[in-house]
Amino acid sequence: MAATLILRKIFKTGFVSEPAPHADAALRTREQALHAEILKVFGQAVAIRHVDAGSCNGCELEIHAVNGPHYNIDGMGVKFAASPRHADVLLVTGPVSRNMEASLKRAYDAMPEPRWVVAMGECACSGGMFGESYASCGKVANVIPVDVEIPGCPPTPVALLQGILAAVSAGRPHAAG
């Protein structure tokens, strides 16, 4: 019976998001600090819309990882939204390829205010190894206004969470345009 096996495995696994034998203690403190900050700023939750504007898919691996059980982002009030119309934060990865330039702008324009833009990873911050070329616009700030830049290739899940916090706790989002 699958149900029996599932229940047995769940009980055996326990909570990995709470103090666990394998968890890094320093990491947990930061997770809890993030939690409190987000609650203070939003009183409830922050919705993120991710746009891959031409990434190598390395940053996406860490966005997936941060959705895993170790990080418990749902419990921290962080949610990934399916549409930019439902998002507070636009999380952009990659250098902006010229083939994604128009789509990225349209996603940004579709967001309600207040809105924040987080550029995730070396490429989004500076153009990275791909730079500016016939095919690449380079960094995200060359295309839309950026509030927070998270360096790293790719940034770790903790760095990603800290960057999201830095965006929403900055207080002064961009005006329209």
Binding site: D52, G54, S55, G94, P95, S97, R98, N99, M100, S103, M129, F130, G131, S133, Y134, A135, S136
Partner: peptide
């Protein structure tokens, strides 16, 4: 083709070690 960022052009003129990173 949306993620086309000119990788092959970027390789041209690179030193061998940087090429491995790209």
């Amino acid at each position: 083709g949306y993620a086309h960022k000119g990788i092959e052009k970027r390789f041209e003129g690179m030193d061998l070690a940087t090429g491995a990173r790209l």
